[in-house]
Amino acid sequence: MQVLQVQLAVQADPAEVGRARKWVRARLAGNGLDPDASVAETLVLVVSELVTNAVVHTGSPAVLRLTLPVVADAVASTVRVEVADSSHAAPAPRRAGCDEDATNGRGLELVELLCDRWGWYPDGSGKRVWCEIDPVASIHVERQEPVASVL
């Protein structure tokens, strides 16, 4: 299986998060993946959360890296997202609490829920947070019939 690895330098500015989302959509489209597919939407959301965490919590630049399958393998291969920053502090999932209007505290919780795997490791002068999404698993989840809940 062949993969394409691309990366984007992100400045220490929260406005860079929007640029990272646009960049991811363009990379997906350029690699033959439908940028409007639900797996693409998931990737864009995960990138948004990880880049936001890196920029907001470190106040320094970061590097976003995507590892994408080549077009022939696009439907069957895992997509990996990595964000490297200059902080040695471990990412700490927080719960937003009972306040439904809270604007932070859900990022890593979303990553955990949306990705098949995620983690982090020390890397050079900082750390690298990574996650993987298996498009095939995402397709199977999308096709499941809704389960009726009993109240």
Rank of each mutant, 00 (worst) to 15 (best):
M1V: 06
Q2K: 13
V3S: 14
V3I: 01
V3M: 11
L4D: 03
Q5N: 13
Q7N: 12
V10Y: 13
Q11W: 07
Q11L: 14
A12H: 06
A12T: 06
A15G: 06
A15I: 00
A15T: 06
A20H: 07
A20K: 13
R21P: 00
W23S: 11
R25E: 12
L28M: 10
A29Q: 15
A29L: 15
A29M: 11
G30Y: 11
N31Q: 15
N31R: 09
G32D: 12
D34V: 12
D34S: 15
P35H: 10
A37E: 12
A37Q: 12
S38R: 13
E41W: 06
T42N: 09
L43T: 02
V44Q: 10
V47C: 15
S48P: 00
T52Q: 10
V55N: 10
V55I: 14
V56R: 15
H57I: 04
G59V: 03
G59M: 01
S60Y: 05
L64C: 03
L64Y: 05
R65G: 09
L66I: 02
L66V: 02
L66S: 04
L68V: 02
P69E: 00
P69W: 08
P69L: 03
V70Q: 11
V71C: 09
A74L: 15
S77C: 07
S77F: 06
T78W: 03
V79W: 06
V81F: 03
V81A: 03
E82C: 08
V83H: 06
A84G: 12
A84C: 09
D85M: 02
D85S: 07
D85R: 07
H88D: 06
H88Q: 07
H88L: 02
A89I: 04
P93N: 04
R94T: 10
C98G: 12
D99E: 09
E100D: 11
T103Y: 09
T103M: 05
N104C: 07
N104K: 11
R106G: 04
L108P: 02
L108E: 01
L110K: 04
V111H: 05
E112P: 01
L113E: 08
C115L: 08
W118K: 07
W120K: 02
W120Q: 08
Y121H: 14
P122T: 02
G126W: 07
G126H: 03
K127N: 01
V129M: 09
V129S: 08
V129K: 03
E132K: 07
S138L: 06
I139V: 14
I139C: 04
I139Y: 14
V141S: 13
R143V: 05
R143Q: 13
R143K: 08
P146F: 10
P146K: 14
V147S: 14
A148E: 15
S149F: 15
V150N: 09
